[in-house]
Design a binder for these strands. Structure first.
Length: 169
DNA sequence: AAAGTGATCATG
DNA sequence: ATGATCACTTTG
């Protein structure tokens, strides 16, 4: 069991997304630490991925995606839900992994609510933080790859990429 | 099937 | 300053 470090997060989002399945998302809530295993992810990779927020360039909202991997990219979706992404890859190339589900909670908005994650944690360093971080205990679940959810606005080529990863066992 | 909800960003 | 657009969830 060890905390995940920078080298791991510097891998491209396409590599990181499936590998994050089974990793443990850790959150300090008051006196206790909540640990939940990741069960579902999606990757968003580069400005050429028309489903990725960075496809329309760098803005105040998307700037975290351009940083070096290992920080949090969090934004408000549909005015209600905070969605939590892990920034991936090297500085300058935008990419991230949306955490869509953890054990006990399915849906990207549900898990952030359960863990008390909101935009006050935008840009937080997941390697150094005592609020939010990831641990690896070596567990490797089986999974399947499918199309991403809720990105009908993207080009067909990007809609059809198998960039959603779901634990099967 | 469709509302509810508000930050974000392009447009004027 | 205004308005369209959402990487969702719940309710009917």
């Amino acid at each position: 069991m060890h905390r995940i470090m920078y080298d791991y997060y510097r891998q491209p989002a396409t590599v990181l997304a499936p590998d994050l399945l089974g990793k443990i998302l850790c959150r300090q809530l008051g006196d206790e630490i909540v640990r939940l295993r990741i069960t579902e992810t999606e990757c968003y990779h580069g400005e050429t991925d028309t489903a990725c927020h960075a496809s329309r360039g760098k803005t105040p909202r998307t700037k975290a995606l351009y940083e070096q991997g290992g920080i949090a990219y969090i934004y408000l979706c549909y005015g209600i839900h905070h969605l939590f992404n892990i920034v991936a890859g090297d500085s300058g190339f935008p990419g991230g992994v949306l955490i869509r589900g953890v054990e006990g909670y399915s849906g990207p908005g549900r898990l952030t609510k359960a863990l008390g994650i909101d935009r006050s944690l935008y840009g937080i360093d997941l390697v150094k933080s005592d609020q939010l971080w990831l641990e690896d205990d070596g567990f490797k679940p089986l999974y399947k790859a499918t199309k991403r959810i809720g990105i009908d606005y993207a080009e067909p080529e990007d809609r059809d990429r198998l960039w959603r990863f779901v634990v099967t066992k």
